[in-house]
Simulated assay, not measured.
Amino acid sequence: MPTSPADAPAATSSEGERAAQLYREGNRFYDEARFAEAEARYQAAWDLQRSFDVAGNLGNVELEVSQPREAAEHLLYALNTFPLGEREEKKLFLQKRLAEAKSQVGTLRISVNVDDAEVLIDGKRIGQSPLEDQVFVDPGKRTIEARRSGARTSTSLLVAKGSDQSIALSLDAGSNIPLVVAGGAVGLLGVASGVTFAILSTAKGKSAAAEPFGSARRHDLLDTQTTLANISFWSFIGGGVVLAGTAVYAFSASSRTPPASQAALTRLHAAPLVTADAKGVLVGGSF
């Protein structure tokens, strides 16, 4: 029920003054049962300055002009922002009108498994996840969609008058960037260690070659060379496995679909490469 002109929103600026004037005009048209004119004035006031009383009056009159979905949205806003100390009978009136509006539309409670996903209904954006409020839709077939970073998912359903449904949309969350970075760093450290120990092993081998055959010094250097070569080998193995696992995770968790002209990477493998002339890690993929 519209409040009296004395209850109009406080005017704090020229925009606020205009909103207050439109609000009072809406009250006057409502009292004269000129609901279309009242709805237009309240809507204009709402566009200028949002408040619980403008929302409540707008939602109330929207019910009178057969706009139940819009009415439900504005009445819910009015109740969510209902101020402390306001008259209880006004709150009860808004709750009653909201129930009337909801009986003529469908209520959806939409959840998405990731935050910051764009949520659309029938191609129209309604916000980003997580959606805190109920979403009101006209009865009929509706398509609910979520999008984020190139990934998308959608579902269609029939909405009946007065229905209340929960919709859960699941998007591929994509790769965990910190995990990918950490895995890449550990893998590269392993490969770098392999290179370092391979260089040290080679140096020990050269030093051993300069020592007399059968000498204790030569024997010690050769033992050290073997130990360093083994450490280098397993460092390459460890780093390569970590790099391969990180790459597989990043590719498998990616939410983007590669172009049809490109084959998907289905397997990645790594192996150490140690020869007389070079040392490193060999990475290959199956396509």
Rank of each mutant, 00 (worst) to 15 (best):
G150S: 05
A216W: 03
S166I: 00
N27A: 07
Q134M: 13
N113I: 03
S149M: 06
E118N: 02
W46A: 11
S166M: 05
S255Y: 02
E64G: 08
A40Q: 15
G284F: 07
P68S: 13
D115H: 03
E132N: 13
S166E: 02
V274C: 09
D277P: 15
V114I: 09
L265S: 10
R217Y: 00
S286P: 06
S111A: 14
S154C: 08
S215A: 12
T224M: 10
R41Q: 10
P5K: 07
T3D: 14
L92E: 14
P212M: 12
L120T: 01
S193A: 08
F197R: 04
F287N: 11
F52Q: 09
D115V: 04
L268M: 14
A278F: 06
A263P: 13
Q165V: 08
F197Q: 08
A36N: 04
G245N: 06
S111Q: 12
R34N: 14
G194A: 06
N113C: 07
S255I: 01
L221N: 05
I237P: 06
P2N: 06
A11L: 02
S193F: 12
V274L: 12
A210F: 03
V54A: 06
T143V: 04
T226Q: 13
Y249L: 15
T196R: 01
S156P: 15
T153I: 03
A263W: 04
V274T: 08
D53N: 10
S149Y: 02
S201I: 02
A271H: 12
E70W: 09
A270S: 08
T275A: 08
A99V: 04
F82L: 13
S4A: 10
R218A: 15
